[in-house]
Amino acid sequence: MTIEIAVLAKQVLDSETPSHLFKINADSNNLEIEDNSAPIINGFDLNATEAALRLRDEGHEVNITVIMAGFNFVNEVIKKTLSMGADNLILIENESLISCDSSFTVEVLSKAINKIGNFDIILAGRHASDFDNGHVPIGIAERLRLPIITYASDIKIIDSILRIKRVIPSGYQFIESKSPCVVTVSNEIGEPRYPNLRGIMTATKKQPKIITINDLEIEPPSEKEINLTKVFIPKINLDTEYIKGDDESELGRNLAMRLKEEGLI
């Protein structure tokens, strides 16, 4: 029997961009990147896509549907998961979906998941690297009253039970869950695969399916309960003291002396 997998993915600015290229857009009260470089799919969501594809590699028959909720989608960017090997892509585009209050995103994605059908597993990245919240998958699980297993570094399916290796600060746990359930995936699962040529060709031909918030019978929130008032780039006024020396050996020695002088070692 086919395992139906939803992967939730978000389009974000690349937070690994050198920090001096970030600037504040006063109109949107958000960050933008100076050279207008293309956004990316949130890295942890690619880890989640990778987790889904590995279940296929292990011989399970899976149908992978990537669902993206956001605004101003860039066509070449959003197709990345298809070119990695996902089967379907669904886009839900609305300006309110980039709000700092994720309750609306949770409502939209929960209703979309219910509308699309019977998912056995809902995968998502552990958090999006823009607002670093990690609310949305947890909110969806709570709303749909599904089990939520966070920080997965490995997912196996044995006799239709999911066995999930979960990263915790002191080590890891094994969790067993019935489906359906929501699982958030962490970078520990391993690098997302690079799309191959065939994947890219297939993705070019595939058209994403569009769902509107009207289809889901949802109104954007009229009133904000969480107000983002300001975004700023903090100035670091640290006068770095560079250790001097003619060669590496002297640098190492001078560093040791300097730290000793300061009582730090």
């Binding site: 003291e241 250790i243 020396g245 050996s249 640098l251 190492g252 020695r253």
Partner: peptide
Amino acid sequence: VARFGVIGDWNQIIKSFISS
């Protein structure tokens, strides 16, 4: 964000740092 900076090949620097 560093109070102290050392620019160079880490391997040599650390070796000398340790022996110092």
